[in-house]
Nucleic acid binder design. Sequence first.
DNA 1: GCCAGAGTACTCGGATAATCCATGTCCGAGTGCGTACGG
DNA 2: CCGTACGCACTCGGACATGGATTATCCGAGTACTCTGGC
Lengths: 140, 140
Amino acid sequence: MTTSSRYAVALHVLVALAHLGEDGATSERLAGSVNTNPVVVRRILGLLAKAGFVSGQGGRHGGYKLARDPKKIALDAVLKAVEPDGIFPVHENPPNRVCPVSCGIKEVLGGVFARAEASMHDRLRETSVADLLRRVESTG
Amino acid sequence: MTTSSRYAVALHVLVALAHLGEDGATSERLAGSVNTNPVVVRRILGLLAKAGFVSGQGGRHGGYKLARDPKKIALDAVLKAVEPDGIFPVHENPPNRVCPVSCGIKEVLGGVFARAEASMHDRLRETSVADLLRRVESTG
DNA sequence: GCCAGAGTACTCGGATAATCCATGTCCGAGTGCGTACGG
DNA sequence: CCGTACGCACTCGGACATGGATTATCCGAGTACTCTGGC
């Protein structure tokens, strides 16, 4: 599995939890659904718990549950939770003062990237976890 | 997924080549501007050469030059060239037939991601390498 | 029968090894200029 | 003097080590159920 499928895994897990409802599921079961290691799921769910989307409970009969109405979980918020640094990292500012491009490129690229990401977030905001669940259930 | 900084480096290099014009530059000089290793630049320029944006010439007095008018190089095309697999990779299709979410999630996520990326591409298409160069020169 | 207590099974969370990708280093292939030699 | 052939300097492109990040394994902390013993 590639390194950057965190977002896809996060959405997969959220949809699964929305599907299961109040019962919730353990990280092992979710991992079986995603076909990965339970630790990966736990780590991603840790990020989602910090953002307030899920709640984890240890102990027997523990597991994860949604902490919010899936209709209130928009996809852009999930992306911010699991990729807080943004999609397009800019390389470190080069100290090359000779090249005029080096000096100004960072600021210019930052603006372009911010606008592009904002556009993407606007589109993602239109969809919620509940929408995804409905589509999955209708296609499945 | 954290896209690496390939895209930022690619744009930096393209702007630098547009700034230099017909003279072009070697990978070593470009690497000095980007503050990285020449081989990184060569690899990215290899992708851009495949896409027809630049042309590389070996031998003495070799180097890279733009192969197209910078006004005709849109930022979305550059992104496609350096990240052909898209921004949001979807994890491998899990063989878990028991979970209904597993079966349908891939297709649903694929659609959502495609729309989000399309929105971003539309925004990126509005800007060209020449626009970036103009902004860099005005701010510098 | 009922309650208290320890025991057990099960889960999450963090710390520690193994693995994978990206980066960095090196070498061969190719090109163009410069020079030396012969005519 | 002029042309040709060789040599050299320089560059790209790909193959081989290295580093950091991601992933997988392991162990401790915590919770709820269960069983046992006493009242």
